[in-house]
């Protein structure tokens, strides 16, 4: 046994078998924990067949003022999406007045976010 256990191939096979066996036992315990878990959400009973609900009406597209490119609209939509605002909630896209003091105030407010 001593000489056999020092054969590299035998060491490799024995050790790999043990590693797989130990982790297999651990995986069984994880499944067992899940099985006996008293807090796991119960599987919902299949809902009775209901009459199909009417398809929701397509959200109205926002009014985009002439002169605003499709790319700009896409950028605005992406920026809003990053704050969790869907594009369907946008009513209109139009250029802001270019009053520099008002813009500075807006930028100041945005920078605080």
């Amino acid at each position: 046994m001593e000489t056999q256990s020092l054969n590299p191939v035998v060491i490799m096979l024995i050790n790999m078998t043990i590693v797989f066996a130990v982790l297999f036992v651990l995986s069984l315990f994880i499944r067992l924990i899940h099985f006996v878990d008293p807090t796991k959400p119960k599987k919902a009973a299949p809902a009775p067949a209901a009459t199909p609900a009417p398809a929701p009406a397509a959200p109205a597209a926002p009014v985009v003022e002439a002169g605003i490119s499709g790319e700009t609209v896409a950028v605005i939509a992406a920026a809003l999406a990053s704050y969790g605002v869907g594009f369907s909630q946008v009513k209109a896209i139009r250029p802001a007045n270019s009053a520099s003091w008002a813009n500075a105030g807006r930028m100041n407010n945005l920078n605080k976010m």
Binding site: P8, V9, I11, M12, V19, F20, L26, S27, I30
Partner: peptide, 24 residues
């Protein structure tokens, strides 16, 4: 992630093959 998918334990076991190749 391990508890959610315990099969991934076998991937952790397989990756130890390198340990034993190097040992040999």
């Amino acid at each position: 992630p391990l508890i959610a998918n315990p099969n991934t334990l076998f991937l952790g076991a397989a990756a130890q093959f390198g340990v034993f190749i190097s040992l040999a």
